[in-house]
């Protein structure tokens, strides 16, 4: 377990350093580090399940990491209150676009039911996405994979979307990154500045809350339509 943790941490540091040096989408730490690690475990003949079991506690840290977001909310309480309506309206729209576009495209591509239920909560942070996935009958492991793909893609396309639409305000930039790419978007938002990062984490948290609501009300109805 210790070896796996140390190696994972070193690969993560290495990937972050490479990603920081050459700012190229394919060098995203969430892409590079897993590729390095898959190489590492296949050389040592460790199966993916053995690796996952040994590194379980790292994934478990997503729980306290979610709790930790109480701190930025508290520190930015005046701003949260001030922009409450902006946050709620834009994030509610974002969650609806996420759910409907994901559903429509999954139908278009004829994904099977297992994949559709697992892909629906893909736009929110992993621990909550897993809960929504369980709620609507998806496979949590598969949902995790879709959440990761969303994060990597969001981190890559996010800055381009902001540029295309010539978005100026740090609030809109942050909310879009947090809504579209959860924690990975917030990570990207840190590169823009503190205000963007603050609103990105707010966007991420509100997206999770609102999607929980849709998980109970809207998504089951959608899936039953066929």
């Amino acid at each position: 377990m210790v070896t796996v943790t140390v190696v994972t941490y070193l690969m993560y540091r290495l990937a972050k350093r490479i990603g920081g040096k050459w700012n190229y989408p394919l060098f995203h730490p969430l892409l590079l580090a897993p590729i390095l690690l898959i190489g590492f475990i296949s050389v040592l003949h460790i199966t993916a399940d053995e690796y996952l079991d040994a590194s379980k506690w790292l994934t478990h840290m997503l729980g306290p990491a979610t709790v930790a977001f109480a701190v930025p909310i508290y520190k930015n309480l005046p701003v949260v209150k001030k922009y409450m309506s902006t946050i709620i309206i834009s994030i509610t729209s974002g969650t609806l676009v996420a759910i409907f576009s994901t559903f429509a495209l999954s139908k278009l591509f004829h994904l099977n039911v297992e994949f559709i239920t697992s892909i629906m909560p893909r736009s929110i942070t992993t621990p909550i996405a897993i809960e929504v996935s369980k709620e609507i009958g998806g496979l949590p492991a598969l949902t995790t994979v879709f959440v990761i793909i969303t994060g990597v893609i969001g981190g890559v396309v996010g800055p381009s979307v902001i540029k295309w639409l010539s978005i100026q305000t740090p609030i809109a930039k942050g909310l879009a990154l947090g809504m579209g790419a959860h924690g990975c978007g917030t990570n990207k938002a840190l590169e823009y500045g503190e205000k963007e990062a603050t609103f990105s984490s707010l966007g991420m948290i509100f997206a999770a809350w609102i999607t929980l609501l849709w998980g109970a009300l809207l998504i089951p109805a959608l899936i039953n339509i066929h």
């Binding site: 994972t8 941490y9 690969m11 993560y12 972050k16 730490p29 969430l30 892409l31 580090a33 897993p34 690690l37 898959i38 475990i41 993916a48 399940d49 690796y51 996952l52 590194s55 379980k56 790292l58 994934t59 840290m61 997503l62 990491a65 992993t126 492991a141 995790t144 994979v145 959440v147 990761i148 994060g151 924690g183 990975c184 917030t186 990570n187």
Partner: peptide, 14 residues
């Protein structure tokens, strides 16, 4: 935060 996502990302091989 990204560190905690990495094991799940490795799980893609499954």
């Amino acid at each position: 935060l990204l560190l905690f996502f990495i094991p799940s990302a490795v799980g893609i091989v499954n």
